[in-house]
Design a protein around this nucleic acid. Sequence first.
DNA 1: TAGAGGATTGAT
DNA 2: TCAATCCTCTAC
Length: 195
Amino acid sequence: MKLTKSFYERSNVVTIAKELLGKQLVSKVDGKISAGIIVETEAYSWKERGCHAFGGKKTNRNEVMFAAGGCGYVYLCYGMYNLFNVVTNTKDKAEAVLIRAIEPRVGIELMRERRKSKHDRHLTSGPGKLTQALSITRKHNGTWLQDDDIWIETGDTVARKQIVTAKRIGIDYAGEDADLPWRFYLRDNVWVSKK
DNA sequence: TAGAGGATTGAT
DNA sequence: TCAATCCTCTAC
């Protein structure tokens, strides 16, 4: 069952990031379905420097973050990798959850083709990898998660004690905000990206 | 309009 | 440890 708009429109992005663990991310591209369980997320808010929309600054790139919760925000990182975020909160309150890793469940053969990687372990264990495996690109920026292109549905039940809290990755430039414990992942899950 | 740098990855 | 690689933003 797809998550409803009211799930995304809540005001606490950190809570949403935690609750997304165990949910299933699904993509349907060219009529082909592939999906996996979300095992790692990070929260971002306009209130802190790690966020593209820090201070409420709107640009062409991050415009989608200012839409109401329930949109996909896809952008290019390092000129090579598409990163997939879920926009949360209400209109003009720019917050989002970065999906950093998933555990493959549906269309694994499809993912192998798209990734061209011999080791399944590397299929979706990182933000740039999972978008490749699910064939998510910048064309999906602004995609409505109630539609039939990309969506998130209920998946596994996650016990509170399975959730590990940590600092976010790769945002050293954010100063003290880089220390915010806004990264969440499932304990002992092999699909979590490692550092 | 030019130039610097980034929410990464995989190979060395 | 480092290069690949190109879009985005800032400053001139």
